[in-house]
Design a protein around this nucleic acid. Structure first.
Lengths: 197, 197, 197, 197
DNA sequence: GATGAATGAGTCTTCATTCAT
DNA sequence: GATGAATGAAGACTCATTCAT
């Protein structure tokens, strides 16, 4: 049955997220992933060509899910509201699935190869959501026009990503227990002031 | 002669920066570093306990050099000027030593182990420079007081770091050829607006 | 229906001949053979105990077919004529079914295990046809008696086999395009002179 | 010291000859060869790029040694004497180093890849010695001219090789204990009759 | 101190074989 | 009988580290 097959593939990807997040890509053993997924080592190779392919596939698929979630943002509210929602969604997602976020933002960077082969497309689309918000904000006069949308969207991504990272990596971090909504608001205030016209 | 010894140690660290930046930590071979440094494989183990130790030592030492450069910032000018200078220095440094920057920001993240063992101290001190500027700005009334200095300094670091990263990783990036001064100014404008009271 | 079963078994053996000839026994995958035969991987194990068993069964069965073809030789003509016919038949067979010949002479040698378990019997019978011709030739006075029939039959087999091999393995060999009849005649002339009394 | 290095390389090759002869190329484990050579597994890879490379290097080097031994034949005596000596040398060599002979004639054939990459050159030179003897014999009028030297040299090689093989593979073969000189004489008688004019 | 040959633990990947459907 | 997804044992190869010179 097809659902059986998809089920097993999903279990492997989910196991890979956990193990990659815990050990890092290069230190993660395929056999650990297999064990975590409850399948035999060889089974992984029925679904993925290699350990590399597993990471890349994982990235593509999870990134697509996230993109769908985020692409809905553009459809409602003012640019300011969209930006707030983007930040809130991102931080909520991090709070919700910290391991996935770590793999998507940290482990994937490990090899320039992944950065070149797999990420530009998906990562670029993720950035494009942000750049789109800024574009529309500039067009509507809500945001200053003398800021480069590409530069600023990348800067904002870095800002949000770093905060996400500190959530993800710090177990007993000083703000780890803060409500992500509060953090999101504070960041949004800061950013909106920075780009408001 | 002590200078001889220091010379060889330095050559190994510089070679490691190059190789780690090019290949990534886990894919870099000790023998490649040895070759790039012009020493025998075994010689590296006279100066560093292990490959891990080489990365950590590299990080600590280079970070200290950078910190000295940045800690001078606090001594002159207004918080706004200090923040501008901080950003400018960071981007100038990236333009100057992109490989070192890549190792310090990307490779070092590879393993949570490094994040936990070696970086918090040095990295924390680097962030502290930024947090100090914000603190003093809030104290002097130049910056808004309802922003958490720790959160904002981390956010600003992420922002600057991401832009640095895009410089480092992109060979034909759209803004790769821009003058780093111009970028620094634009970022500073954005940030200062965001935190100005 | 029994013929159905036999049909599938035959298809597997024929596919195995092709794949073993192309890839060699150890590099041939059971799944390739299954695909070439148009059956599922598991089906092969309904007809053969193992990959080894497939090779051995293939050898035995094909060898028996060949032996029937060759054993008819002993029934007609003089020893000289029989020897000529033996050589001609062998080379004609090679020209006709080069892949089968390659499996029977090259792949089967790969493992001493096959040489010990499966081939001696069948191979011995094949040699026996040759030895029988020589025996009868010596008895009739046509062939010299101071040649050991076992040694000479083996020598002749090697001679013919090597020429066969060069046919099988060489695509653009210098004599690959020659008529096998011509080659057979030349070899027969040489051999008959060598053993004639 | 260079002799140390060469010594270790030689030990590996000699161990490989033993193991390849006993188990066959594909069933021989690199670790077995290492153990037989008294070195660590990894050491083999300091001298050879891969298991394949080990077999090919072994073949090339041993073949060259043999060729030097055989190429001396052409310098003395009549073609008949040369042919006798060639056969005698070949069989003596087989009796002396049966495992090496098995690797050189049986194992090397396993993969068409080896046949194409490594052997044609060396094998061709070996055959050329034989073809040269026949050529000179035909030129001097000692051998019949209506036999193709290339065909006949290949046929003779097959003949001699098969007898060698039966020596090599049969432990309790009926003629295994015979004096190789006697066998060589009998074969030489047969062959010389066959090609004498 | 310096060397670099040697080590051998560690792991990805393959593929013959099995068995639930 | 037939299937083919799943299994997991097996092995080539890498490379950080050591140590005799």
């Amino acid at each position: 049955m097809s659902s059986r097959r998809e089920d097993k593939r999903k279990r492997i990807i989910d196991a890979a997220v956990d193990v990659f997040a815990d050990k890092g890509f290069f230190q993660a053993k395929v056999s650990e992933i297999a064990e975590a997924a409850g399948v035999a080592d060889g089974t992984i190779y029925l679904y993925f060509k290699s350990k590399d392919d597993l990471l890349i596939s994982l990235f593509r698929e999870k990134m697509n899910e996230i993109l769908q979630r985020f692409s809905a943002i553009r459809d409602e509210g003012s640019p300011e509201q969209q930006l707030r929602r983007y930040i809130a969604e991102h931080l909520a997602f991090v709070a919700e699935k910290p391991k996935l976020m770590q793999v998507l933002t940290v482990e994937i960077r490990q090899s320039p190869r992944f950065m070149k082969e797999a990420t530009p497309q998906a990562f670029g689309r993720y950035l494009a959501v942000l750049a789109g918000i800024i574009d529309r904000g500039q067009a509507s006069g809500a945001f200053r026009k003398n800021l480069d949308p590409v530069l600023i969207s990348r800067a904002l991504f870095g800002l949000i990503d770093e905060i996400s990272l500190s959530f993800v990596l710090s177990n007993e971090n000083e703000w780890a227990r803060r409500d992500s909504t509060e953090v999101a608001n504070q960041l949004a205030d800061f950013i909106l002031r920075g780009i408001a016209s």
